[in-house]
């Protein structure tokens, strides 16, 4: 099957494989610990670990966009900040 129309590059393939790996890891986590681990975090509403992953990924996207729009520094710093943010989301939200 010719997928050249999708214009794949290694960086985008690695990006999507990382997302896929995260989803697989979440599925395995759910298999061994079903129910989604619901809890009420600092925002006062209930979240499952799926919600927390979504908030972490969406936040990471905006951190990266903000980094690109506001600074000249390398995007790797935005990735590091996103990881710190994701840890914060999984622990507190």
């Amino acid at each position: 099957m010719d997928l050249s129309w999708m214009a794949w590059t290694w960086p985008t393939a690695i990006f999507f494989l990382s997302i896929l790996a995260l989803l697989v890891a979440m599925a395995v986590w759910e298999y061994f610990s079903p129910g989604g681990g619901p809890r009420i975090g600092i925002f006062g509403f209930e979240t499952t670990r799926g919600d927390r992953l979504f908030i972490a990924l969406l936040g990471a996207a905006f951190i990266s966009l903000g980094w690109l729009g506001l600074t000249e520094l390398s995007l790797w710093w935005a990735l590091a900040l996103s990881l710190v943010y994701a840890v914060g989301v999984f622990r507190l939200v």
Partner: peptide, 20 residues
């Protein structure tokens, strides 16, 4: 799949002919 394609396009430039 269309969204993934848009992401792929967003980091490249093309003048047609499937050349990026």
């Amino acid at each position: 799949i269309p969204l993934m394609t848009v992401v792929n396009y967003s980091v490249q430039d093309t003048f047609g002919q499937n050349v990026f």
